[in-house]
């Protein structure tokens, strides 16, 4: 599964992996903004951004080819729009849409592939995102590994009995079988949430999450942040 692969990449120990999540989050936002606001995004600037990102993946020892393939998730969408733009006589836009969206996806992927998601979410707390929201996100991600596993086994069980996803004669029955499966998954999820709540109370939870401190934002993090910002802005000017 996709998220499991990214999760594995994010467990590395390279220079990029070791940088503070806040530094990476801030650098990412600057880079994305630089790409998004570059009028037209000249081929030269685009290529330099691309080269920098590739270098980033290689330096972080994340499989470059795998990363390129995963970022390509945005391409079908972008290329279709590019085709429409080209057909309606706007070849410049036709080139820019896939270029910008692919570069942006690649940049996000570089940060996510070098930062475990919970750390990254906590990094966003430093930029003012409410902790409550980030904690919800953290639980969504944590239990995605559990609930998706249950959904997969239910789907397997269903396909052993003919499946609820395929068309067939008894299609109304299949529809309600799928609804029933989701309802069971829902009830299990709800039950799991109640057990988690009980286990929190059992360890003294009194209504507020106390977290361990974020690690210190060191000189290397400052250096990384400032130089990424400088590079992102400079390349945009090419």
């Amino acid at each position: 599964m996709h998220h499991a692969v990214i999760e594995r990449w994010s467990q590395g120990h390279s220079f990029l992996h070791r940088r503070d999540a806040r530094a990476k989050a801030a650098a990412l936002l600057v880079l994305l903004t630089a790409i998004a606001t570059a009028p037209g995004l000249p081929v030269a600037a685009g290529s330099v951004y691309f080269a920098i990102l590739i270098f980033g993946f290689a330096a972080a020892r994340v499989p470059v080819r795998g990363a390129l393939a995963r970022a390509a998730a945005v391409l079908p969408f972008s290329l279709a729009f590019a085709a429409i733009a080209a057909a309606s006589g706007d070849p410049a836009r036709a080139a820019i849409l896939p270029g910008k969206s692919y570069l942006s996806a690649l940049a996000v992927l570089l940060v996510v592939a070098t930062t475990p998601l919970p750390k990254l979410l906590r990094g966003f707390e430093g930029i003012g995102v409410p902790r409550f929201l980030l904690m919800v996100g953290q639980f969504v991600y944590r239990y995605l590994f559990v609930i998706a596993g249950q959904a997969a086994s239910m789907r397997l069980a269903a396909s052993c009995r003919g499946g609820f996803g395929k068309s067939g004669s008894a299609h109304k029955t299949r529809f309600s079988a799928a609804a029933g499966a989701l309802a069971v998954l829902f009830a299990r999820s709800y039950g799991a949430a109640e057990n988690i709540h009980r286990s929190m109370l059992s360890r003294g939870f009194e209504g507020h999450f106390h977290l361990l401190r974020n690690p210190r934002f060191g000189p290397a993090d400052w250096t990384f942040l400032l130089s990424s910002v400088a590079v992102a802005v400079a390349v945009r000017g090419i």
Binding site: P116, P118, K119, V146, A192, N195, R198, R203
Partner: peptide
């Protein structure tokens, strides 16, 4: 101290250390 049947219900924090520190922080 309660150790629940399903560890997934008990290990809800993002890392092992965060999780084990959950009680002491409380």
């Amino acid at each position: 101290g309660f150790v629940f049947q399903n560890s997934d219900d008990q290990l809800f924090m993002p890392t092992v250390l965060d999780d084990v520190a959950f009680g002491p922080l409380n």
